[in-house]
């Protein structure tokens, strides 16, 4: 039990110091809000609409499929640079890798993930 007491004290001290600092700075600092100052900063333009912008969650699946090509590019470029020293074995390895990735995208295609419903 005493070991956990130490953790508890640690947590309270941690939270306490943060709250104390915020309280002290609030106590000391001058505060002068006015409407022109508190409006959202949008590169000096007046804000248009709400800042709570929502994206269609269908983009998520497209982003996920994009990751396939992303990973492919990450491995392809160093492979292409070092291709001279690697020889036939590396070529076969890379073809296998790309085939596996293409299997993934064909699977997504068959499932209709590329169609905007």
């Amino acid at each position: 039990m005493t070991e956990y007491l130490a953790v508890l004290i640690f947590v309270f001290a941690g939270v306490g110091i943060v709250l104390f600092t915020f309280f002290m700075s609030r106590l000391i600092r001058p505060s002068n809000p006015y409407p022109d100052k508190t409006i959202n900063y949008e590169c000096a333009e007046l804000p248009q609409g709400s800042s709570w912008i929502q994206f269609n969650n269908r983009f998520y699946i497209f982003a996920l499929i994009f990751v396939i090509f992303d990973v492919e590019a990450v491995f392809l470029f160093p492979w292409a640079v070092a291709f001279g020293q690697l020889g036939l074995y590396a070529l076969v390895e890379m073809v296998v890798f790309i085939v596996i990735l293409f299997f993934g995208i064909f699977y997504a295609w068959r499932k209709g993930a590329l169609k905007w419903v």
Binding site: P30, N32, Y34, D36, K37, I39, Y41, A44, E45, L46
Partner: peptide, 12 residues
Amino acid sequence: PRLRRLYDQMAE
């Protein structure tokens, strides 16, 4: 007016 807005948005 944009410059004025930027100035207004800075903290004193």
